[in-house]
C-alpha cells in the first residue's frame, strides 16, 4: 500500500529529534515527524488553536490525487484508536477502486461484505448486511 504517514505538531524538527531519541516508547517510530512551528499547516486543516499555539488531534487521509477523503478531529484529552484509523484507511483505498460500493461500519478488510446502494436495497439494508 503506497502510503506516506506524517505526524505533525507545532514543535520543530529539532525537538522531534530530541523526543524520539529520549522516549523509549518512540524507539520503533518509522514515520517522518513534521514540524509546523508557525501553525500554518494546522490552520489549513482547522486544527490549530491560537490560544494555546497547539494543534488538536486531527487525522486526515488524502488520496493520491490530493483529494481529502477522511477527517477526524479529537479534543486534547481524547486519544485515537489506531485500529479504526487503519480500518478507515483500508476502506478508502478499497472504495477508490470500487466507487459504486459502500463500506458499512463493521467492514474491516478486503473480502468483508460491502453494500451496493440501488433500488433493490431500499428498505432491505438489514437483509443486505445479514445475508
Amino acid at each position: 500500500m503506497g502510503c506516506e504517514i506524517v505526524t505533525v505538531s507545532t514543535d520543530t524538527e529539532f525537538v522531534h529529534l530530541a523526543w524520539q531519541r529520549h522516549e523509549g516508547e518512540l524507539a520503533d517510530v518509522k514515520y517522518p515527524m513534521g514540524a509546523d512551528p508557525t501553525g500554518k499547516l494546522g490552520r489549513q486543516f482547522g486544527v490549530y488553536d491560537k490560544t494555546s499555539g497547539l494543534c488538536l488531534r486531527g487525522t486526515f487521509i488524502i488520496n493520491p490525487q490530493g483529494v481529502l477523503m477522511n477527517s477526524e478531529v479529537n479534543f486534547y484529552n481524547m486519544g485515537r484508536n489506531i485500529d479504526e484509523l487503519l480500518r478507515k484507511f483500508k476502506a478508502n483505498v478499497y472504495l477508490s477502486k470500487k466507487a459504486n460500493e459502500g463500506c458499512p461500519s463493521k467492514w474491516k478488510d478486503d473480502g468483508d461484505a460491502t453494500l451496493t446502494p440501488g433500488p433493490e436495497m431500499v428498505g432491505k439494508v438489514h437483509e443486505a448486511l445479514n445475508g
Partner: peptide
Amino acid sequence: TFDPKTGGFGRFSLAEAKEAGKWTVLFFYP
C-alpha cells in the same frame, strides 16, 4: 521533518507524494 528512519532532517511534500502515486495520512497532535 525529522525522519527517525535516517536519523536526519528531511522535507515532506504533498506534491511529491502525489507524483509517486501515494496516499498521505496526516496525524496532528498537540
